[in-house]
Amino acid sequence: MQFLPTTCGALLLAALLPCAQAQSTVTVSGTIDIGVYKDAGKHWNVGPISRSHLKFSGSEDLGSGLSATFALSHRFNSDDGSTESASKPFWHGEATVGLKGAFGSLQLGRRLDVISNNDWAFDPWYNFDRLASPAWDLWHYNFPSDPKGNGGSAEYGRLNNGIFYDSPSFNGLTLHLSGSPEERTGDTDKALSAGVQYKGAGFGAFVAHGKNSAGHTDTFIGLNTRVAGIGLMGAYDVSKAGASKAKATTLGASYGIGATTLQAGWGQVDVDGSKAEKMVSVGASHALSKRTSVYGDLAHKTYPGDSATVYGVGINHSF
Rank of each mutant, 00 (worst) to 15 (best):
Phe220Leu: 03
Leu177Lys: 09
Ala287Asp: 15
Phe170Gly: 03
Ser67Asn: 14
Ser145Leu: 02
Val310Leu: 13
Lys245Ala: 02
Ser153Pro: 04
Tyr141Phe: 08
Ala228Cys: 08
Gly186Trp: 07
Lys88Asn: 09
Leu173Lys: 09
Pro181His: 12
Tyr236Gly: 02
Val227Glu: 01
Gly104Met: 09
Thr292Asn: 05
Pro168Ala: 13
Lys42Glu: 12
Leu251Ala: 11
Ser67Leu: 06
Met233Phe: 01
Ala132Lys: 06
Val28Asn: 10
Leu16Asn: 12
Ser244Ile: 04
Ala20Trp: 15
Val238Glu: 11
Gly104Ser: 10
Ser145Asp: 02
Leu173Ile: 15
Tyr126Met: 05
Asn118Phe: 00
Ser254Cys: 05
Gly58His: 02
Ser52Asn: 03
Arg184Phe: 07
Asp272Gln: 09
Asp119Met: 12
Ala121Gln: 09
Leu72Gln: 13
Thr27Met: 03
Ala208Gln: 07
Ala243Asn: 11
Leu173Gly: 07
Ala253Arg: 01
Glu183Phe: 03
Gly215Trp: 07
Asn212Val: 02
Gly93Met: 07
Gly98Leu: 11
Leu54Met: 03
Leu17Asp: 08
Ala246Gly: 11
Ser213Thr: 14
Val28Trp: 15
Ala68Pro: 05
Gly93Arg: 11
Gly202Ser: 08
Gly210Ala: 15
Leu99Thr: 08
Ile221Ala: 13
Asp189Gly: 09
Val36Leu: 14
Gly267Met: 05
Ala299Glu: 07
Ile230Gly: 00
His74Leu: 08
Ala259Lys: 13
Thr96Arg: 03
Val97Asp: 07
Pro147Glu: 05
Leu138Thr: 00
Leu12Tyr: 13
Ala71Phe: 01
Ser285Ala: 15
Ala299Gly: 08
Gly172Thr: 04
Gly152Gln: 11
Gly93Ser: 05
Leu17Val: 15
Asp79Cys: 04
Asp123His: 01
His317Val: 14
